[in-house]
Design a protein around this nucleic acid. Sequence first.
DNA 1: CCCTGTTATGAAAACGGTTTCAAAGTAGTT
DNA 2: AACTACTTTGAAACCGTTTTCATAACAGGG
Lengths: 372, 372
Amino acid sequence: MPGVLLTASILPTTITGIEIDFNKGKGLVGQYNITEIARLCETSPATVSRVLNNPDIVAAPLRNRIKLKMEELGYRPNPFASRLSSQSRWGLALFVFDILNPFFALIVRRISHLAMEQHIPLTVCDTENNEEKERIYLDYLLDNKVGGIIFSEGISSTTIERARLSTETVLLDRHFQEGLISEVTSDNYQGGCQATDYLIQLNHCNIGFIGGPDGWTSAEDRYRGYRDTLERNDIPFRPELVYQGDLRFESGIGALEYFLTLPEWPSAIFSANDQMAFGVLTKANSMKISIPGDISLVGFDDIPLYSLYTTKLTAVQQNIEALCESSFKIMMTKISQEQDLEGMNREVNDRIVIPTKLKIGETCGKCLQRTG
Amino acid sequence: MPGVLLTASILPTTITGIEIDFNKGKGLVGQYNITEIARLCETSPATVSRVLNNPDIVAAPLRNRIKLKMEELGYRPNPFASRLSSQSRWGLALFVFDILNPFFALIVRRISHLAMEQHIPLTVCDTENNEEKERIYLDYLLDNKVGGIIFSEGISSTTIERARLSTETVLLDRHFQEGLISEVTSDNYQGGCQATDYLIQLNHCNIGFIGGPDGWTSAEDRYRGYRDTLERNDIPFRPELVYQGDLRFESGIGALEYFLTLPEWPSAIFSANDQMAFGVLTKANSMKISIPGDISLVGFDDIPLYSLYTTKLTAVQQNIEALCESSFKIMMTKISQEQDLEGMNREVNDRIVIPTKLKIGETCGKCLQRTG
DNA sequence: CCCTGTTATGAAAACGGTTTCAAAGTAGTT
DNA sequence: AACTACTTTGAAACCGTTTTCATAACAGGG
């Protein structure tokens, strides 16, 4: 489950690891096996197995007798034996880059909820932006024949490409090489436009942008929205108004500090996520810079948690529920298609875009003097 | 497994669940098995197995030949086969009650780091305060012969008791029935004393307390510290100054609202965790109540994240690193003891207490008029 | 009543490892 | 040379399922 996070031999290329053996010990569990059940029901293991996996094909009286006996003894099938012999893939995994970030924490919670509803184990892999960790997790998952992996932002292409070749994959709010993998994203470009448009309507033209790390396609799309909207409104793009953040709180602090070193402060800031916006807010607060009095601020994500804080952040709202549900649904479809079609239409990949919405809070105001 | 995440048959008492079979498909993986390797090295599977599990007992030349061949072919042992035949327990799990709470998120991150260092898979179980989820997770873990489980606060005794009987268990910052399970806790009682003492030194005697849910032993210990310290200082305990929260942000808001309905406001509030203290801070802010001007505030945990916010919270500091490291170490010891002693000294349980420290921030001030 | 087609079951062969046990080889002692 | 002790290896049994294949039982059609 969650998780799932997770291994039988989770190792690098070599094969080591501490294997623990306590046959003696508290092992009251798993007394019964399928043969025992069969014997007690005066039938064969094959039939018991059928009751487990395909009950309909065994005659009702026998089936009930077996079911009852299993219930009575609290029999639980051994998953190792089962998966060894059936060779089936099973279970899902979710890669996130930073579980401390509430945006990802919410995704984790939502996806693991969906998985649990279906009784599917989910392994959560918090990679902490570390390629080595990604590799260890992926090795583990592939060894354990995971059924599919959902990748969110911040995971290296190496990992994704490797996963793509051996199991089902779905992207959550990010792109990968054109069309290779099904993806569900927010309309980040549109969101970037919405935020920028709104600020321009408020008369701002000196708009700072706090971006994300290279290769974060969601942040890049937001950036494109920002630039295109400026252009559409004949506002010249000024590179010095762009600060590259890392999407964490601290980064917002750094961004504001940077913007304040400019000869002319931006009158508004658009941050590629809420965490950084919140950093700006906090820093501004402590420096007695008024938001929105001195500087207007727009975030991205609309994390519910943040709306509880002192000043309600104006932010582009992502529909996290919809993101999670769609990507989970696509994954389930892929997985069942496998069953039926045996990979015939493997190359048909979905691409779902979920609209964003600007949610007005209290961090934006009209720009009075128009400069630039 | 993380494991995150998580099941071969994760089911309730009945046996259902969607099992997916895609033998055809992208299965380029796992081409080689131990017999194949043996054949190619002109030796027997038994010997290859020995190289995997106990390299020293096979002669160097043969061993190297086999190792090389495995490397060359990218051979990966099948964990299902391996665990089926060895019957060994393997892997760890961590139960947390709310992964959105930064205190637990930090624990998750720390423990999973430690586990990964040792190449041990960790399954993180975010129970969301739901006994049904606990059961599903635990069933899954026991079916999969987990090596041990670490329980943090907020998990039901039913679950813990059931786990205790079938696998190794360690408690992290909580108690369970006296001495039955090894535990590592912060000195919550002492922390409660420290906070209360500090406020009393500042001349406060009207001190509100925001507690946790029933059965949360860590919060109860903090509460005892609060009460005993009042008593030691001859300050009468007043039940109306105690508010039972649920340890979440919103709960702090509710607490402050409640305290303000009292005929006489508390001049200081001690909150059983940072999240609720932060709720108080936020609510106070929006109501123009000054902290520490009107009310002093002490939290508990000292989440690093929160120290970045506008006002630095005064809080009792828990040594999360130490908590995690100790409990992980105890778990590792238990697990290896199993190997050696085959349960001889099963009943020896550790009990480690980690001191707390009061960290002075900016949310406390001297109480000027002394009432009560 | 015989033939055919279907349904219900069991025997036995996988699945890919680990482990026990015996045998063969090596070395050291007398 | 004979005996013992130890090291190395392989054959075969086993772990608990699933799955294939064959058979038995049964129903329906002529």
